[in-house]
């Protein structure tokens, strides 16, 4: 564990807490893409299958349970909670995320560290996470104005993977047999997808103005 990875995990956790706060405090999920939440739930379920077979550390196990539990709770809330689901931007959240699932699974069958079921699912979860924010970014561009908590949620979600890239660079130079090229390439793509959001988020912070994404 290094400071980049720990900060990355805490940033990821913070993004989930901000999202839970927004939904709980405002009883609204306006501006949040249900499709991105469903993709993230799938990412965690596919990646943390080894939850009960490979014990790595208490921290690792607890964080996996928190990520799986919170992502499923958010999807449940957005689908079932009568107050919350009324505020869901259904007509704006129309990105065909099933294509993302199919494409990532095909890619995982072709490109993986070992052609074994757990490794294919792990690669699938890495590729899917890289593109899972697309429906959310599309929804933000369509919905124009972004409320503060939603903006902070997306910013933290993008920042965590950027910190993981620093973690991979650090591990590459400090660990002899370290190779995470699948996660690293996917992580670079994932972070690059946030580039224009980061730019407009920085502008809104610098000008102390409302976050506006050009539609």
């Amino acid at each position: 564990m290094n400071v980049f990875r720990l900060t990355g995990d805490m940033t990821h956790l913070a993004s989930i807490l901000v999202l839970l706060l927004k939904i709980y405090a405002t009883k609204s999920c306006s501006g949040i893409s249900l499709k991105t939440q469903e993709l993230y739930a799938l990412v965690f379920l596919a990646r943390y299958l080894n939850l009960f077979t490979d014990f790595i550390s208490v921290y690792n196990t607890v964080m996996k349970l928190v990520f799986i539990g919170s992502s499923l709770a958010i999807v449940w809330c957005m689908r079932m909670h009568k107050m919350v689901k009324r505020s869901y931007d259904q007509e704006l959240d129309t990105f065909r995320h099933y294509f993302l699932i199919a494409g990532c699974f095909l890619l995982a069958l072709l490109v993986n560290e070992k052609f074994m079921f757990p490794e294919v699912l792990w690669a699938f979860s890495i590729y899917l996470e890289a593109v899972s924010t697309i429906p959310q970014l599309v929804l933000l561009q369509r919905s124009g104005n972004v409320d503060n908590l939603t903006g902070q949620y997306v910013f933290l979600l993008g920042a965590y993977r950027a910190l993981y890239i620093l973690n991979w660079i650090y591990r590459y130079f400090t660990e002899p047999h370290f190779s995470r090229w699948i996660a690293c390439v996917a992580g670079l793509v994932q972070t690059a997808l946030y580039a224009d959001f980061f730019y407009y988020y920085f502008l809104s912070w610098k000008n102390n103005a409302k976050l506006q994404l050009p539609s």
Binding site: D9, R47, E113, K114, W122, A183
Partner: peptide, 10 residues
């Protein structure tokens, strides 16, 4: 498992 193969990250 071996360091490189085991997925020790979240």
């Amino acid at each position: 498992g071996s360091g490189s193969m085991e997925h020790d990250e979240l």
